[in-house]
């Protein structure tokens, strides 16, 4: 278990303030924050590349605050991979293990896991972004790190590669590897994380399991940053080529998806939902009757929550709100298209 206790650090005009975190063995922990929020700095502190001004870091009940980088048993995959340009992929992979008789054997095993066996004799400059990422990951995994730190591992890959690497990271985590993953992309957090911490301006502003953080943003910053209120844990089903998700095993929402059946999260942006005062026939497949429970003025209009009994948040203009004479307790119909529903598999 990794414990950060009241870590503070000023670095090049930027400050991390009083960071406390607990990361359990086997967690897939995602640190979510904008660029400049201090998330990469936090990773470097954990890895020991820089030292904190105050506070303590404990790994498995051992104080490693001032331990040498080499003695921490923490692996870090850099955002730019940091592969050694003068060594082949094989020698990059073998760099961490010296004078070890099963060297080659172990490298081959890792190479197979990462599907890079055909690249072993190449130099890093001849690798694509995805390949370099997998080599960097392999090189770190060979050290058997207690904690694997990943700095924006998917950000420089194109969409197709991302899916593959996400799958791989999840597989590695399922084999028991504790992972701390830094990103600015909430899709990644939802798809991968077992727990999430949101970091802004050098401070941790919310920590919790994925669902609770996304569903109950503790501050406006998180709500705006994530931009999600209609966020539900769900199970995807496909029947005769039609996809739908079941939420709480009762509410059925239709969507367009090419993903395989399984668990995940659905998201519907509040501005994609229409409000009617009665049932209205349209091309939209998702129609629910509900009662307005709340109406909150927001930066762009008014957000109303509709209990169907599942609660949906709907963003409407002030003009519509007044024209339709909406208010708490009023019965309405809400409606949204299947194409407005986004599903992220976990």
């Amino acid at each position: 278990m990794l414990k950060l206790k009241n870590i503070s650090k000023s670095y090049k005009g930027f400050a991390l303030a009083d960071i406390s975190l607990e990361i359990n063995k086997g967690d897939y922990f995602v640190l979510l924050g904008n660029s400049g929020s201090g998330k990469s700095l936090l990773l470097e502190l954990i890895a020991g590349l820089i030292n904190a001004n105050s506070g303590e870091i404990h790994l498995n009940n051992k104080n490693i605050t001032n331990s040498k980088i080499q003695k921490r048993n923490i692996g870090l995959v850099f955002q730019d991979y940091a592969l050694f340009p003068h060594l082949t992929v094989r020698n990059n992979l073998l760099f961490p293990i010296r004078k070890n008789k099963n060297k080659a054997e172990k490298a081959i095993k890792i190479a197979e896991l990462l599907n890079i066996t055909n690249l072993l004799e190449r130099f890093p400059e001849k690798l694509s972004g995805g390949e370099a990422q997998r080599v960097a990951l392999g090189r770190t995994l060979i050290t058997n790190p207690e904690i694997l730190l990943l700095d924006e591992p998917l950000s420089s890959l194109d969409v197709q590669l991302r899916g593959g690497l996400r799958h791989l990271l999840k597989k590695i985590n399922r084999q028991g590897q504790t992972i701390v993953h830094v990103t600015h992309d909430y899709d990644e957090a939802i798809a991968l994380a077992s727990r999430v911490a949101v970091i802004d301006n050098g401070k941790i502003i919310q920590v919790g399991d994925t669902e609770s953080v996304f569903k109950n943003p503790s501050s406006e910053f998180i709500a705006n940053f994530i931009g999600l209120k209609n966020f539900f844990k769900s199970v995807l089903h496909t029947n005769n080529g039609k996809s739908f998700v079941l939420i709480n095993n009762s509410t059925k929402i239709c969507l367009l998806s090419d993903k395989k059946d399984g668990e995940g999260f659905v998201m519907i942006r509040s501005e994609d939902i229409f409000v009617y005062d009665k049932y209205t026939e349209s091309s939209a497949l998702n129609n629910f009757e509900g009662i307005i429970r709340d109406a909150v003025p927001s930066r762009l209009g008014i957000e109303i929550s509709v209990e169907t009994p599942l609660i949906f948040w709907v963003l409407i203009t002030k003009e519509s709100f007044e024209r339709m004479n909406l208010g708490e307790g009023k019965k309405v119909w809400i409606s949204f298209k299947a194409s407005a529903v986004k599903f992220l598999k976990t």
Partner: peptide
């Protein structure tokens, strides 16, 4: 020589001396 590469070597367990000679 990028300092990041040397730091990467440290995180992979290499000592400063080994990093100096191999990286």
């Amino acid at each position: 020589v990028s300092v990041r590469l040397e730091k990467a070597a440290y995180t992979l367990g290499a000592s400063q001396i080994r990093t100096f000679f191999t990286i």
